[in-house]
Amino acid sequence: MLDVFASFSPALLALLGTVIFIAGCVRGFAGFGAGMIFMPVAASFISPVTAAATFLFIDGLVAAPLIVRAIRICDWSTVLPVVAGSIVFVHAGAWLLANADILTLRWVLFAIVTSLLALLVSGWRYQGRPTRPVSFGVGSVAGVLAGVSQVSAPPVVAFWLTGKEVPAVVRANLIVYFALASVGTFVAYFINGFFTIAVFHLLIAAVPAYALGLYLGSKGFGAADPKIYRWVAYSLIGLAAITSMPALDPLLR
């Protein structure tokens, strides 16, 4: 009989399933942050390539129902240029993921998550008019980050949280952005051969956990105070970054 979980031990599956459930709750609640939670932790236990390909597949598949409502309230004039930039430049990030040293990638991922989290927490916001060239530039940066780490939301979040959009519109923009930009990332990952049998083994356990997390997070968003919804995600992201730091491996793993 085929063991569909042959690539992972039961303990590791339980750990990764718990992390992806928490990531799903944050994604459903805030509209972003799942990759920032899942990737640093998962990449410290399994190959960063396997972690990134698994998360891309899970998020693209399970988060699709969120688009139904988001497409009615998102700001298409700024979403589409960001998506275009991401699709073009995601290939550069995928190349880095395919060719860089694993330990180096873990440190890069830690640096990406902590730096962009600091940017979000600092309160800095882009105050200019979201022109198409600026939007395309933001998408280009997000595309590179998506390809190398599946952590593309922070520059886009900082760009869209200008103080003019309510949280519901920002959340809708992010949901639509992820859905459309993931198409380009799928192509880049397929070209680089990232979708291995280990990815599909992990998907069997991760999809139900992520789906449940998304559902609960979405329900929580409807009842949450818009002033605090971001900070829930920020706190979990920070915890994930700290606990995944390679320097802490002797203490935590």
Rank of each mutant, 00 (worst) to 15 (best):
F8C: 08
W124R: 09
P226R: 02
I102G: 04
I191A: 15
G193T: 09
R132I: 14
A233C: 07
L239I: 13
V82H: 02
S47V: 01
R253L: 14
S47L: 04
L216R: 03
L212F: 11
S9Y: 06
A241I: 11
A168P: 00
G139K: 04
L239E: 02
A181M: 14
G123K: 10
M39S: 08
L248M: 11
R230P: 01
C25M: 15
V148L: 15
E165H: 14
Y177P: 00
L216E: 03
L97F: 06
A84Y: 06
P40R: 01
Y189P: 14
D101P: 02
K219V: 03
R106H: 04
A34Y: 00
F29M: 01
W107K: 03
A64N: 11
D75R: 07
I37R: 01
I242L: 15
A247V: 14
H91R: 14
A247C: 07
G123H: 09
V199T: 10
A14D: 08
V187D: 10
L214Q: 02
G184I: 09
R106T: 04
V83Y: 07
A172W: 03
L117T: 10
V79W: 07
R72P: 02
Y210V: 02
P10D: 01
M39G: 01
V232F: 07
A63Q: 06
F159D: 06
G217R: 03
A42Q: 08
I204G: 01
F221W: 09
L212D: 00
F55Q: 03
P167M: 12
P48V: 11
I87E: 02
A51M: 10
G139E: 07
V183S: 13
N99A: 11
I228R: 13
V108H: 08
D249I: 13
A188L: 12
I102F: 13
M1T: 12
W160K: 01
I71N: 10
G17W: 08
I67V: 15
F200T: 05
V151M: 06
R125E: 07
P246L: 15
A43V: 08
I73M: 10
G128K: 07
V83S: 03
V19S: 02
G238D: 12
L2K: 12
E165R: 15
A94E: 11
Q127S: 15
T54P: 04
A181P: 11
T243L: 14
C74G: 08
Q150L: 06
V232E: 00
F159E: 06
V90K: 13
S9F: 04
